[in-house]
């Protein structure tokens, strides 16, 4: 069964931030990762101030948000270049505060509640990433934390676009972040987790024109379907059957007879299991693709057969 394909509003990506071991911009996402790369050191990127008491996922989110806001020209010498309530935040992460939850739990069982630190309280709530980013950068618009499994990153972009379409907010910082920590490795049964973050600034075409900033990509149709095959068919239908120039496939790839001849990109084979960050990384990678290829459409798809598949069509900024 299908969710109705929404008419795409005119929303563009105007800023991109990528913070991965061995990749610090959108184009690098599409290259082979370096053989050995040091983990991202947030203190080296954004300074030590404000990092204490924060989970790694939040620290990584700070770094990607900082790059994306600068890239979009939204930062001024002091604070923001636009009104603080015109910028919202949508963050996606599944494992963001898992570290705090299990370590507090262990402390309670070993020492009773008396052994816990009050400084852990904000991190016990999973929305700490979205709200911490808002506090750090002074973003007073709507603030949404998406913890929605494999589709979460693309869902986060969809909610940003939806809130712009209804006029709730003019622009949204979208962040996807996942940490590679011991509890996460255990949840993934030894799988290799992503240890990084990506961020996008998305804004209305009106805001793009008013600020006079270039569009790095335009966000097209979103679909959510029971299967990957349905997802691709609906994206194609919405795009009147035009072949995409590349296709970002979910972890594990896609059936060979689907979209034959279209180059496939599986970011998780290069960067690890991206979980809630995947969709945001895919959009950033699409921006990288468009910087090297003039035209065309990129399909971003993420999900699992047991739940559903999310799909998004992006087009190049020049079109």
């Amino acid at each position: 069964m299908r969710t109705k394909v929404a008419t795409p509003p005119s929303v563009a990506v105007t800023g991109t931030g990528v913070v991965l071991p061995g990749a610090s911009n959108a184009s690098a996402l599409l290259a082979d990762p370096p053989q050995s790369a040091e983990p991202v050191d947030p203190a080296a990127l954004v300074g030590r101030k404000g990092l204490r008491y924060k989970d790694r996922a939040t620290r990584l989110a700070y770094c990607a948000a900082d790059v994306a806001l600068r890239d979009a020209g939204l930062t001024a010498e002091r604070g923001l270049a636009v009104d603080s309530d015109t910028v919202g935040v949508v963050a996606s992460s599944n494992f963001g505060n898992v570290d705090t939850v299990v370590s507090v739990l262990d402390t309670i069982h070993a020492e009773t509640v008396a052994g816990t630190s009050p400084m852990d309280l904000p991190n016990a709530s999973s929305n700490v990433i979205a709200s911490s980013v808002a506090i750090r950068f002074g973003l007073r618009g709507p603030n949404l934390m998406v913890c929605n499994g494999a589709t979460g990153g693309l869902d986060a972009v969809r909610w940003a676009v939806t809130m712009i379409a209804t006029g709730r907010v003019e622009r949204v910082l979208v962040v996807g972040t996942e940490p590679a920590t011991e509890p996460v490795r255990r949840i993934l049964h030894g799988g290799r987790p992503l240890d990084g973050a990506a961020a996008l600034v998305v804004e209305s075409s009106q805001s793009v024109a008013e600020r006079g900033v270039p569009a790095q990509a335009w966000l097209g149709h979103f679909v959510r379907t029971a299967s990957l095959v349905e997802c691709v068919l609906q994206l194609a239908e919405a795009d009147r059957g035009t072949q995409p120039s590349s296709w970002q496939v979910p972890p594990g790839g896609a059936p060979g007879d689907l979209l034959p001849g279209v180059p496939r990109i599986d970011l998780t084979s290069s960067w690890g299991q991206c979980s809630g960050a995947l969709g945001v990384l895919q959009c950033a990678a699409a921006v990288g693709w468009f910087s090297d290829h003039d035209t065309g459409t990129v399909y971003a798809t993420a999900g699992t057969p047991a739940e559903s598949t999310a799909g998004l069509a992006l087009t190049g900024g020049a079109t």
């Binding site: 969710t3 599944n94 998406v146 739940e307 559903s308």
Partner: peptide, 28 residues
């Protein structure tokens, strides 16, 4: 047991109600 898909509500609601468009917002 626990997998990464057990932290949010999508898979459970797909199984029970056939929902394919679920969104778990963790907004405190």
């Amino acid at each position: 047991t626990l997998t990464e898909d057990d932290l949010h509500f999508g898979p459970v609601l797909r199984e029970r109600f056939g929902v394919t468009d679920t969104h778990t917002f963790s907004n405190a």
